[in-house]
């Protein structure tokens, strides 16, 4: 399979061509946000640990908004290997760091919750939230990449991501997505999270496709003023 061989050959160069530092810093900060207070024995209730884990997920996903940055986009965008594959590889580069960051944070949170807190931390559902936030960041970045063919994407995608996540975090009352672990709506809200994950994934895939041809509009009738060298008008130009 050519596709498989291309993918395999691309892994190394893609790894080196992708911006790693925001990713690593994001994952590290995310892990530290939970690991540090957990190791320091900070006395928090289960809602606070859940809140810290959610913030960790948001920070870890921020780094992914920079992975599609490509200074040579002008060259790479017209090569046969599809945009979807190039993007998928770059996102795949982001996955291990983000997953490790989340695992570290989740493990620390779990340890504390098991030993100190009576109510459950509900880690599977929080992991669903984290995965959704990650995929949402990917979808936003891929969408911004369509609008910025010059390849400097993160500089716009990161603020857009922050705004979107901030808006989700601020959703009031019944519309709230980040509900307390003790909330009666927990299961209901996590069905919405699941739905959001599916929507974000589909959006990321759709947006990663090659841009289709632009919308067709009214055909401007402009006189053809081309002059062929054998045109008798050649000598009549003023």
């Amino acid at each position: 399979m050519t596709g498989l061989r291309i993918t395999r050959s691309l892994v190394g160069p893609t790894l080196r061509a992708t911006r790693q530092i925001p990713l690593l810093v994001g994952a590290t900060l995310a892990a530290a946000l939970v690991v540090a207070p957990a190791a320091g024995g900070t006395d928090l209730d289960v809602g606070s640990w859940a809140g810290l884990l959610r913030f960790a997920a948001m920070i870890a996903a921020l780094g992914v908004t920079f992975v599609l940055d490509d200074p040579s986009a002008a060259t790479t965008s017209v090569l046969p290997v599809s945009r979807a594959l190039r993007y998928a590889l770059r996102v795949a580069v982001a996955v291990p760091a983000s997953v490790l960051g989340w695992l570290a944070a989740a493990t620390a949170g779990h340890q504390v919750a098991v030993s100190h807190v009576s109510t459950p931390l509900r880690l599977p559902a929080l992991t669903l939230e984290a995965a959704t936030i990650f995929v949402l960041a990917v979808a936003i970045t891929v969408g911004v990449a369509r609008l910025r063919p010059d390849g400097s994407i993160g500089v716009v995608a990161a603020p857009v991501y922050l705004i979107v996540v901030g808006a989700l975090y601020a959703l009031p009352g019944r519309a709230a997505l980040f509900v307390a672990t003790t909330s009666a709506q927990w299961d209901e809200v996590h069905q919405i999270w699941g739905l959001l994950l599916i929507v974000s994934t589909s959006a990321a895939f759709l947006l990663a496709r090659e841009p289709a041809s632009r919308r067709r509009r009214g055909h401007p009738r402009v006189g053809n003023q081309t002059i062929r060298s054998d045109d008798p008008r050649v000598n009549a130009i003023s």
């Binding site: 810093v25 209730d45 921020l62």
Partner: peptide
């Protein structure tokens, strides 16, 4: 990438301080 990271860290610190604890 520094400013988005800094702003998210600041936001998180501020919001985490608002969590009961």
């Amino acid at each position: 990438a520094v400013a988005p990271l800094a702003s998210v860290v600041l936001a998180v610190l501020i919001l985490a301080a608002l969590l009961p604890g």
